[in-house]
């Protein structure tokens, strides 16, 4: 078996994330894919606003910090000027599916040749656990203290399901990182997204169901269980769309 060490595409800066937050796992998977494809020198990453706002300190490739929700537009600007580079965004649910809905949908409709890593943990983590577009019905958050009432707050946004209807999308896949087997699948999906990009085949988005132990008020291990019991039934894992657009 090979040794297991931190991938080169991650810097030595320790993650600031809370204990058990799965952001760190997803960061590592992206970095491993960058290492394996040997594209660190040709990759530009775009960070969101949210918990992963400081991802620019963690990735060793060139990095840009975008305004809230605008990462796909920023990525478009980089990619159109540099079509042979790899461009990925790393965004949370508030960033991608609320304030940045238009940027997400339209980067997808253009078949923008970028890879979007979408962290769905059903909450606004950085600001202290408010309702996100992906908060589950009945879920208690700081701004849904009696549970998300769909008569008042409406329904969760299912990003992969929406993207599956968009012609410009080459890959929309939902994965999770609750255990090594799922982590392997998540990494394969991320790799697939970057491969689509390499072959200039269209927009790829990998939605990763993730935990937020701090704002869920659960231990890291309990959070994994809560994710499996509550999120996966509402957000089924799997490939929602796959196939070259171009």
């Amino acid at each position: 078996m090979p040794d297991f060490t931190k991938p080169h595409a991650l810097t030595d800066v320790p993650f600031h994330y809370c204990p058990g937050c799965t952001h760190g796992i997803v960061h590592r998977l992206v970095a491993e894919v960058i290492d394996e494809m040997e594209i660190e020198g040709d990759t530009i990453g775009i960070c969101p606003v949210g918990c992963s706002v400081m991802a620019y300190d963690y990735f060793n490739c060139d990095m840009i910090e975008a305004a809230h929700g605008r990462a796909p537009a920023v990525a478009t600007g980089v990619k159109r000027a540099n079509p042979d580079k790899f461009v990925f965004t790393y965004q949370g649910d508030g960033d991608l599916a609320a304030i940045g809905t238009a940027e997400t949908i339209h980067a997808a409709t253009r078949g923008e040749n970028i890879t979007v890593i979408f962290i769905n943990n059903t909450t606004y983590g950085m600001t202290g656990g408010q309702m996100a577009p992906t908060t589950l019905p009945g879920q208690v958050t700081q701004t849904t203290p009696y549970g998300r009432n769909t008569n008042v707050e409406g329904f969760p946004v299912k990003v992969c399901e929406i993207l599956s209807q968009i012609s410009g999308v080459a890959l929309a896949e939902r994965v999770t990182v609750t255990d090594p087997a799922n982590i392997r699948k998540a990494k394969a999906a991320i790799r697939k997204g970057f491969e689509f990009q390499k072959n200039k085949q269209g927009f790829s988005l990998i939605e990763v169901l993730s935990t937020c132990p701090t704002n869920w008020g659960k231990s890291p291990v309990e959070s994994l269980e809560w994710l499996k019991e509550n999120m996966i039934p509402y957000y089924p894992l799997g490939v929602y769309k796959e196939g070259a657009v171009r």
């Binding site: 040794d3 297991f4 993650f15 796992i25 090594p180």
Partner: peptide, 23 residues
């Protein structure tokens, strides 16, 4: 057994596993 599943699961890249570097 050096399977590295602990390291795969670690969100902080805090675990390294040495198997002599052999595949």
């Amino acid at each position: 057994i050096g399977c590295a599943l602990c390291a795969v699961m670690c969100p902080d890249c805090a675990i390294t596993v040495k198997n002599g570097g052999v595949d």
